[in-house]
C-alpha cells in the first residue's frame, strides 16, 4: 500500500466517522435554536453573512425533507450538496475511472473557476439584496 492509498483510507475513515456524528446532531437538534452549533466567525467579525451562513439550518431542514425551508436558509447549499457528493464519488470511490467525462465537466479547471465565482457572487448578493 503506497502513501497515497494510506492517506486516502485514513481520511476516509475519519470523515465517515465524523459524518455519522454530525448527521445525527443535525437531525436531532435544530441549529436555529440550539447554541451547540458553531457560529460563523465571518459573520461575528464583519456583520455580513458569508456564503455558508444558514447552511447548518439548511442541512437540518434537508434532513427533515423540508426543501422549501432549506432553500430559504441557504439556497447555495442545495446546489453544493449534490455537487460535493458527486465530487466525493468521483475522487474517492473510483468514479473518475468510470466517468472521466463527468469529471472533466464538473471538476475541471473551468468548473473550479465557475464554482468559486458562483460562491462569491452568492455571498455578495445575499448581503446586498
Amino acid at each position: 500500500m503506497d502513501r497515497d492509498t494510506r492517506f486516502k483510507l485514513l481520511i476516509g475513515a475519519a470523515i465517515s466517522l465524523m459524518l455519522v456524528a454530525v448527521v445525527f446532531m443535525f437531525y436531532t437538534f435544530d441549529p436555529g435554536d440550539m447554541p451547540l452549533f458553531p457560529k460563523c466567525p465571518f459573520l461575528l467579525v464583519t456583520g455580513y453573512e458569508c456564503p455558508g451562513c444558514g447552511s447548518q439550518r439548511a442541512v437540518h431542514d434537508l434532513l427533515h425533507l423540508d426543501l422549501k425551508g432549506a432553500f430559504s436558509q441557504n439556497a447555495l447549499i442545495l446546489f453544493l450538496i449534490p455537487y460535493i457528493l458527486l465530487g466525493i464519488y468521483l475522487g474517492f470511490f473510483n468514479g473518475k475511472h468510470h466517468f472521466p467525462r463527468l469529471e472533466k465537466l464538473f471538476f475541471g479547471k473551468w468548473a473550479a473557476i465557475i464554482v468559486v465565482s458562483g460562491i462569491i457572487i452568492y455571498g455578495v448578493l445575499r448581503n446586498v439584496v
Partner: peptide, 11 residues
C-alpha cells in the same frame, strides 16, 4: 475543489 466548498457547510 472539495476542500474549498466543504468549509461552507461547517461555518
Amino acid at each position: 475543489i472539495l476542500a474549498t466548498v466543504l468549509p461552507f457547510l461547517l461555518c
